[in-house]
Amino acid sequence: MRVQAEGLRVQIGGAEILRGVSLEAKSGEFVGIIGPNGSGKSTLLKCLCRVLQPVRGSVSIGGAALASMTYRESAKRVAVVAQHAPAGFDFTALEMALLGRAPHKRGLERDGARDYEIARAAMETVGLAGLEERTFSTLSGGERQRVLLAQALTQQTPCLLLDEPTNHLDIHHQLRLMEIVKSLGVTVIAAIHDLNLAAAYCDRLYVLRDGEMAASGAAGDVLTRALIRDVYGVDAEILRSRAGGNHIAFSKIVEF
């Protein structure tokens, strides 16, 4: 499902976080958003899942305007993996995953055998089979992150938004998460800190700086020495790995 954002402007507490950002992800495309801290990556994602309302600009998903949908409709199209937790309360891991079925349920309808099947399959996909009955708060940071991915998978949406999805994950599970997401074949838009991970998995990258799009395009074209130095203020070398991909090695901070 195609996701399109046009001229998004967002102000939070008087500060302009996004200054007219546009983005497009074609159906089935894996799009990465990179940029330094505070550049507006999370804010942009929040606009795409209507957690934030932009003051200007619009978002359309599958050709329909996001703002005109009910929350239930938008939740059927877009799932989000962010850092949320049931603060102060506790669900089991399986219950957390099952909450992903919420937009597909009407009123008093209970979670049926099919819903449990979907949730259990998602738990297995993220490698948490056997931990279904553990309470969420007793899980490690990485396990929690994977439960949240399982919840998003259970939502079975054609679009998936990921906000720093590899936070708390060890390198094995970082790669695994990216593989899982890639294998779904759905439209993915992910804010990613790790440039190498972004380069390896994303079909296209958008580079945000100070709430504006600094560059966009295929990873190989975007992630140049000049851009990394310009946007992040870091000297880097682009190495060719034996597998044929690019690998970025950071050497030192350069003063702006």
Binding site: K46, C49, R50, V51, Y71, R72, S74, A75, K76, V78, A79, V80, A82, H84, L99, G100, A102, P103, Q155
Partner: peptide, 8 residues
């Protein structure tokens, strides 16, 4: 935020 992305 999570409730909104899950349809409520």
């Amino acid at each position: 935020e999570a409730a909104a992305t899950l349809g409520t």
